[in-house]
Simulated scan of single mutants.
Amino acid sequence: MPGGRLTHEDRRQIASWLADGLGYAEIARRLGRPTSTISREVARNSAPGGYLADRAQQAAGQRARRRRPAQAAEPPAGGRPAEAVRGFVEQFAALLVGVGLPRMPARVFVCLLTSGSGSLTSAELVRRLQVSPASVSKAIGYLEEMELVRRTQESGRRERYVIDDDVWLRAFKADTGAHAEVAAAARRGIEIFGAGTPAGARLGRMAGFFAWISEQMNGSGLTDAAVRDALTVLAALVHAARPLSVDELATALGWPVQRAAGALDTIGRRAALADPLTVERAGDGTFAVTPRADRLSAAQRAALAAGPRPAGEARS
């Protein structure tokens, strides 16, 4: 039933539809599930050979039987959290709200995320967030449904809410436009910090992850014809080796202007189509291709810009 656990038959259907080339959004629509349920299922239960229904069912069963011992409770905070900590929790929660998480679940999630042990009781959450137990209970229920937290039983009847280490594999339902914006912002950060720096490498992984989520949740509407048009426009920009307007592209390709504009829009929504290039729009309305900043390190770009070495010159 929608909202319940996936059955073995559900997983067989997912495997079959993936083999047919359907996107996550279409599979979710056919099963009557959130798109995030399908993306999480495939991310968590895929094998090196792809997504296999029997293996996925076995892996899900093993997780359901797994029972971790409850982590020790954190010592009392000794009053309200420090101003900087509270400010960070609220700011980070606001960002999660921007990608689709309701405000109270976002606050509870960030509070758990920033706790020393990655787990808190209801009373500890109430004290830290200065909210009612009912608000915490409702937020925890929402986060459990999204599989972002789990609960363990402590001595007596007290429960502890835990964030597992693999929580980032559990892609939650969010606005795909916001995911694309996060990916684009991370790529801009790569230019600032440098692709060869540790910060640049982390931003590159983050950009790839959020771009993948955005593309999977927004990808089922693309037809083969739309993909072919996008690749043709990409080839035209590479061949021209100069910025072109939509009108210039349409004229050169013998297309209606709307078709060329649609192909550019497709590339904008599916950045992976242009990889390892990116299509950028200039202030004058023209479009050009450039190499993606995260594909080459600063040292590699400098070496390529320097041109060929004289014969016999030693490499560093």
Rank of each mutant, 00 (worst) to 15 (best):
A84R: 13
A298G: 12
L52H: 13
I267C: 13
S214L: 00
T278L: 04
V162H: 03
E74R: 08
I14F: 06
T278I: 10
A226Q: 15
M206R: 11
A178Y: 09
G254Q: 06
R30E: 09
F210D: 04
V289L: 10
R259A: 14
R55P: 03
G268E: 11
F109T: 04
E83S: 07
L277W: 15
A180Q: 14
M206E: 14
G200P: 08
I213T: 13
G221M: 02
T176Y: 12
W17Q: 09
W168F: 11
A171C: 11
R157H: 13
G4L: 05
M1K: 08
A180I: 10
R205W: 06
D166Y: 10
A314M: 11
A139Y: 03
S155I: 09
G98Y: 01
G254D: 12
P48S: 02
G78F: 04
A93C: 01
G23Y: 03
Q57K: 06
P2V: 01
Q130W: 08
A314C: 00
A260Q: 06
L222D: 15
W168N: 05
Q58V: 12
S119F: 00
R80N: 00
E215C: 07
R103F: 04
E26R: 11
L6N: 08
S316M: 03
R12N: 10
G194S: 03
H8L: 04
S297D: 09
T223R: 09
W168A: 13
D224Y: 09
W212D: 15
E41M: 01
A82T: 13
R160L: 04
R301K: 09
P69R: 06
F109N: 00
V162N: 01
A211V: 06
G50C: 03
T7K: 02
R68D: 15
E144W: 00
P308A: 10
H8W: 08
G194L: 00
F109L: 14
P198N: 02
E90V: 13
R158G: 07
D275W: 13
L31T: 12
R150K: 10
D275H: 14
R12G: 14
L6C: 07
R202A: 15
T197K: 02
L18R: 15
V246A: 15
Q130D: 15
A43S: 12
S39W: 09
E90K: 07
R29A: 13
S39V: 15
E144K: 08
R281V: 11
L296C: 08
A272F: 08
Q300M: 11
G87C: 01
T176K: 02
